[in-house]
């Protein structure tokens, strides 16, 4: 009997060795251990005909063989299942180096980028951002700013008039007056916005550009506070190593007045193309608010003092991004706009 079992084992081994696919493995299982027609199942059924002694012995051997066969079949099947999974995955392969699907973001205008940075700096220093009209009366555009009646800035050559009394504002300083009328000192105001001058467009001029105006009116404010404030601003804007220089200058709405220079952000002050070799970049005008301006809005210049400053965003933009032609700022060419972030 054991010969027969050895024969069966040998047969199974031979047959299983010839299996090459998952289906053949299933057929092999059916053929050997299938519940109805499996060879081994049939063999088990013959046990009843044997003597109890033989039955026990042969039964042990058959069971042993069955375990062996089951193990072998599982091994075979799992090997084929793994191969099938691998094949399935392989068939699903994609080219992961192809571009991802996303909509490329648009970009903010460089003037907006700078304006927001400047606003953030000054808000953190306690300033209120304010806004003023772009079409102004003579009073706000000139009179209240102590600009003499004969000043050339008032001429139709320089300023865009709509009527004799209404003009496009020629500086954001107009917002100083609105702010001081709206609120009482102490006040700190930053007013960014568009201004207009009758300049024919060229590489360095546009008839419209952006300024940022600053105003602070409180008790006991000095030129030193102005310089300290500007120093703080340029350090936050251009880095902690940036230095500031004040030169006396003249603007009708301040006295004393000063032109602000800051050390070049590119070369640090040694001289380069950005600063035209001087090491300094002009930021804009500033000074102590003129007593006539304060009196004009009902603030007593003996009680309060204040400072004001202004800077041009377009020029700053040109310097920081290296623009060679500021007309590009308002052409809205997407090949230009997408360069800023």
């Amino acid at each position: 009997m054991s010969d027969r079992i050895d024969q069966l084992r040998e047969d199974f081994r031979r047959e299983s060795g010839e299996v090459t696919g998952e289906q053949e493995a299933t057929a092999l299982r059916d053929r050997w251990v299938g519940r109805k027609s499996g060879l081994l199942t049939a063999e088990m059924k013959t046990l009843g005909r044997l003597s109890p002694e033989d039955r026990r012995l042969t039964g042990q051997l058959l069971n042993h063989l069955k375990e062996e066969i089951e193990q072998e079949l599982e091994l075979l099947e799992s090997r084929f299942a793994a191969a099938r999974e691998l094949a399935q995955l392989a068939s699903e392969q994609i080219d992961v180096t192809l571009p991802g699907r996303h909509l490329p973001a648009g970009h903010l205008h460089p003037i907006t980028l700078l304006r927001q940075r400047i606003e953030d700096i000054f808000v953190s220093m306690g300033y209120h951002i304010e806004d003023g009209p772009e079409i102004e009366t003579d009073f706000y555009n000139f009179d209240a700013l102590n600009i003499p009646a004969i000043h050339p800035a008032r001429s139709r050559q320089d300023t865009f008039y709509i009527t004799g009394k209404l003009a496009l504002r020629s500086q954001t300083s107009t917002v100083q007056i609105h702010s001081m009328q709206r609120r009482q000192p102490p006040l700190r105001v930053i007013a960014p916005g568009r201004v207009f001058r009758r300049d024919t467009p060229d590489a360095t001029h546009n008839p419209m550009f952006y300024q940022v105006e600053g105003l602070l009116v409180e008790r006991g404010i000095t030129l030193g506070d102005l310089k300290g404030t500007i120093e703080e601003f340029v350090r936050r804007m251009f880095g902690p190593q940036t230095r500031t220089r004040f030169r006396p200058s003249y603007f009708p709405f301040v006295e004393p007045g000063a032109e602000i220079d800051y050390s070049c952000f590119k070369c640090g002050g040694t001289g380069c193309r950005v600063c035209k070799g001087s090491g300094w970049i002009e930021m804009g005008g500033s000074g102590m608010v003129h007593p006539n301006v304060l009196r004009g809005v009902g603030i007593d210049p003996d009680e309060y003092t204040g400072f004001a400053f202004g800077l041009g965003l377009d020029r700053l933009c040109a310097l920081m991004y290296g623009l060679d032609d500021i007309r590009l700022l308002y052409e809205n060419d997407i090949r230009f706009l997408e360069q800023f972030r």
Partner: peptide, 10 residues
């Protein structure tokens, strides 16, 4: 995907 434009007021 929109870029910001700034145009003249006139």
């Amino acid at each position: 995907g929109f870029h910001e434009a700034v145009s003249f007021s006139f």
